[in-house]
Design a binder for these strands. Structure first.
Lengths: 231, 231
DNA sequence: AACTTTTCAGACCAAATGGTCTGTTTTAAA
DNA sequence: TTTAAAACAGACCATTTGGTCTGAAAAGTT
């Protein structure tokens, strides 16, 4: 999406003559405002994820978004607010896949599904993944509280599901948290270390074949690694 | 190691009176110089790994090392040289463990051993791991060439070992590069995402029990995941 | 002890950068 | 078409920061 797309939305979609109908007053303006804000956020994510918070200048972002620095400050009162808003948005997407963990289901289905969803995230939102990684590496100054509370409690919840699988003999004994870490690390690796992966394999998750190969390799390893012994 | 250690080495070890014997001229000076340089490197690694290249100021490093900014510039002509030197040093340690891959050996032994070595690295050099990760995430501006050449060829070499295991039926078929990526990602996760791991588990690789538990969890998953089907 | 070289510190500088101020243009609504 | 509010731009500012210059202290050598 480029700047042009945005402007087009605002001007062409609404035929130049008049507002088609009476929306709530200010609705059009609000939408345009929100759209542009959103666009800036996407651009900024792209830049932040490349150079980190400190390595990114407001001017870089403004240039990338094809607006003036001043204009950017019209939409976000300062650099931190911009950065923070992005991180918040990321968290949502990042956590969605984990909802697939439900006790009633078959471990193999759930795990396969979860791995695929996470890998899709690495493919479709690699920048978000990298920004998240940058934040964590640097000590999670912003997200620390979130990790220790929300995330922790969610994981404890999901751990119970895994534990129930173990106690029912559906999978071999394993520390549930370790299992989750294992899935996170292997899937996110392909976003965070994308450059390294590409340098060595010449490929990318955006390559469909490579994606499928990677996906099933991870799935197989984990599924087979969890099969009860002497099956 | 603190700044004090350094000075002590220079002053106390050599009894104040006189040089014990005639070393090559300038040898004492050179050693002192090298030691201090090394100390600065270690301090700088610690700071860089926390805040990244751009997020780190020379003054921060100087303060951490308890020397003046000017003094730092006496040992390193600029910020980049300092950063680069650190990265070079890291690469060496980072690659050492992979030498355990030898065809003659038993896959299980080799893999277990390799996983342990990598995990030890994550435990003992987490800062190095994080700095390396930062570099890769940001597109590996410095290391890209290295990745595409040296590293790639090393991996191709080791891949053959793994492939030979597969063709001999010692392990089930898997893409060797993928396998190596899995090991890298799972082990390095505990250094790079240390904060997250700690936030959720309350523990660390520095915790001996947690280290062993993690090590065998990864080992088991991978070993069992690679066992030939219908054993 | 004298002398030379190395090591270090404080003042200083120029560029970069986050952010503001003032005023102009654009736009939606009437 | 008019008008008030919203959107935007350029000049400007204060601070930070990588890096230099000059000279003083420290250490090694004879």
């Amino acid at each position: 999406m480029t700047k042009a797309d945005i402007s087009l939305k605002g001007t062409k979609v609404q035929p130049l003559k008049k507002p088609r109908t009476e929306l709530e007053p200010g609705a059009r303006r609000r939408k345009k405002f929100d759209d542009k804000r959103q666009f800036i956020l996407e651009t900024a994510l792209s830049v932040f994820s490349k150079y980190g918070f400190h390595g990114t200048t407001i001017e870089q972002i403004a240039n990338s978004a094809d607006i003036s620095k001043t204009n950017l400050f019209y939409y976000f009162s300062n650099k931190e607010e911009l950065y923070l808003t992005i991180l918040e948005n990321i968290l949502n997407d990042w956590l969605k896949p984990i909802t697939v963990f439900e006790e009633v289901d078959d471990p193999e289905d759930v795990l396969k599904n979860y791995i695929r969803l996470k890998l899709e995230l690495s493919r479709d939102q690699p920048e978000a993944s990298r920004l998240f990684c940058l934040e964590i590496i640097q000590g999670a100054p912003i997200l620390k509280g979130y990790l220790e509370n929300e995330l922790k409690s969610i994981l404890q919840d999901k751990s119970k599901v895994i534990e129930s699988w173990v106690s029912k003999g559906k999978i071999k004994p394993i520390n549930p948290i370790q299992l989750i870490f294992f899935i996170w690390s292997t899937t996110q690796h392909f976003a965070d270390f994308n450059v390294q992966v590409k340098a060595i394999t010449g490929k990318d998750l955006s390559n469909k074949k490579f994606f499928e190969e990677t996906c099933s390799a991870i799935q197989q390893l984990i599924i087979d690694g969890l099969k009860r012994p002497r099956l």
